[in-house]
Nucleic acid binder design. Structure first.
Lengths: 228, 228
DNA sequence: CTTTATTTTTAGATTTGTCTAAATTTGAAT
DNA sequence: ATTCAAATTTAGACAAATCTAAAAATAAAG
């Protein structure tokens, strides 16, 4: 559990890029593209990160993350996505505007800041784009659920959970009966405001605002009878 | 109105230091001390800033801000102090913990971010330390008022204003009659929770929480009869 | 008005991260 | 197997910000 030496912003950006692209390895050119630099610069940085034990690297063969590199990348992504939630939910930025700002804020180094920001935001599991936010211990929320506002009309789904644990949201979902395990079919998306109309098997109909739909995580079901 | 070229974090830190220490000029050693570096480094930086027209500099004679340097410094200080308010009021950091974090956050470059942060915080005029926050146009709130929680027992004062414009605060102050222009004498500070007991000339007594006292700006009056 | 001490500046080197241009390795095609 | 193109790495240089050590200017003391 040796505290990982502090990384520079640039090192963190390269780590994020390797994390995003390596399956399980990524070439120097593709990496350089991602971080907006030249292949020669990427080579230099890869070698630095390899010396620190964060990536495994074989000359001319590409680069991938080591276990400790994966932990470090998750920490950066956690910071990035928590700031995105803050920018969108508290400051009212649109979901398309938050990425670049979070890119800068994510490099502020303070575990306590992130701990408190997380609590202030009610420990969200997903960012405004619906991407999962790594937990403080480095584990990831299951990606099994997709946001309900990504479900297409006609599609059936089972409720998997909520994207955060605001009391207001959980109370509301409980009151209308949209709780984990229940199954629904999306019958309409109101064009004007994105309101979702859903029905359960016994015919009960329910309207859910676009805002609420964004915070409900669901698992899509087979369109027709699964086993017939 | 040429948009001032973007400054590096380091340049901004030097500017802040010159602003804080120059009256009207500051020596190289003192400046180097303030930004935790050596005199030779400070000399280099001073020359860069002089070329950009932000400081006026004469070799061996010290350095001071130009008008445009003062504007740039105010912008940095504005960002710094707004983040301090955020950290203290929204994330619950103690007033002594916020400075170092704000030191990092202040360098995130985005006028829109600061605009929205300012609105989110209800356009505060003073930071958690009671220092004035420069306005978006670069002007400064009057420093005439001090925070009421800095007034000593027995001292009389006239209410000058509120440190921010939250509706809740203004409503409350209006309801209890603690409005700008009224005069009071502080008769007690409850040791347990810092509650202030104040009285006006007609003998009316009022208790004000430490939190509220921190948001009221006052001008101390002469202890006894001003002209007798 | 010298001498000395302090302050400030210059000179040259270092680190991080970048670049261009040249050299090397890989792998694909004939 | 050889050739050729693409990908990758090295070599050398540069800008920002810093340092140490040496030189220069100022200020203070006798």
């Amino acid at each position: 559990m040796n505290a990982p030496a502090l990384l520079t912003s640039t090192e963190e950006n390269y780590l994020k890029a390797v994390f995003a692209l390596a399956q399980p390895r990524i070439g120097t050119n593709a990496l350089a593209d991602r971080v907006q630099t030249k292949a020669s610069s990427a080579t230099d940085m890869i070698q630095r990160l390899a010396e620190k034990g964060l990536v495994e690297y074989e000359r001319y063969r590409g680069v991938g993350l080591t276990p400790s590199g994966r932990v470090a990348a998750a920490a950066v992504i956690r910071r990035h996505r928590l700031w995105e939630v803050f920018l969108a939910e508290k400051l009212g930025f649109g979901w398309h505007e938050v990425h670049d700002l979070a890119e800068e804020l994510e490099h502020v180094q303070s575990p306590e800041l992130i701990r408190r920001l997380d609590a202030f935001l009610n420990t969200p599991s997903y960012d405004p784009h619906g991407d999962p936010i790594p937990r403080a211990d480095g584990t990831w929320p299951s990606e099994a659920g997709i946001r309900m506002d990504h479900v297409a009309v006609g599609q059936s789904f089972r409720v998997a959970g909520a994207a955060d644990r605001t009391d207001e949201l959980l109370d509301y979902l409980h009151r209308v009966g949209m709780v984990p395990g229940t199954e629904w079919t999306l019958s309409e998306i109101v064009p004007f405001d994105g309101t979702r109309t859903v029905q359960n098997r016994s015919g009960r109909t329910l309207d859910l605002s676009a805002l609420a739909a964004r915070h409900v995580l669901v698992q899509p079901q087979e369109p027709q009878t699964p086993n017939a």
